[in-house]
Amino acid sequence: MKFATFNDSRIGIVIDSAIVDVTEANLGINAVTAQGLLNGIMENFDSLRTKLDEIALSGSRVPVSSVKLGPPVPRPGKIVAMAVNYMENGALKEKPPIHAFLKSRNAIIGPGDTIILPKSEANVFHHEAELGVVIGKEGTNIAVESAFDHVFGYMNFIDVSARGLSGGNFFWNKSWDTFAPIGPYIVTKNEIADPQALPIKLTVNGVLRQELSTSDMAHNVAACIAWISSITTLDPGDIIATGTNHQGLGAIQDDDVIEMEISGLGSLKVNVRDDLKRQWPTEIDSTFADRMAGRA
């Protein structure tokens, strides 16, 4: 099942190229916001599933093209992003130590939205294509073996990153408003047979930049969930961005159109705006790639 938000604060189920509104369905969830309703659906998904299936079949469908899709998780409790979590196409000899940072939840934008580059003096702004994991059930100290019990589903996640800001820590590099495009929808976990064997592609203006597979992940989804939840409780509606393979990163700049697709999770398309009209090479940043692969 695929869940999306649309037309500001509606929640819908996407079926092929149509969407069925479930916002007013009598699901027994007491919520005042779209995120609240979504969290209720996720927490009670097992018991609501039959009903949601019926609504999806019998409810009136409107073409997705006739609505404005929003970010499928409009207001996550938190975004935990894994740092350096790929083997860089096997280039790294050893797994990097497991590591993460928090990204501001206010950075979220949805499909068709625009990444706005800040005027701040970054060296460059990069796209990072990542598998986003949406948490459906609260958990602390979750065991690797039961990690997927806490997963609701998956979505495309672009971890937009500023490089080279002085002081340059994660907050400053990662948390700018609009720096977390997600969507177009959340795909429930049952539709993804193996989250560790998913091809990911990202293009800029139609030209391929990133092409990676989640099989190259250093610490897999279950290991990430276990580690994060040993530190801080995960809640329904939290997002884990599982990291990227840095081979293929490149600059994003004014007027760029970025398209990202993980097999089975749909295509996420966003625009870029830079009022300063700064320019960078329109190609893969091979210096950065070499550094991350330990070749330089």
């Binding site: 935990v80 928090l102 530190i231």
Partner: peptide
């Protein structure tokens, strides 16, 4: 905590 030598605020600060 033995984290990488760059920004490690998450594991330093975010425990329950």
């Amino acid at each position: 905590l033995g984290n990488p030598p760059y920004d490690s605020y998450f594991p330093i600060k975010s425990w329950s």
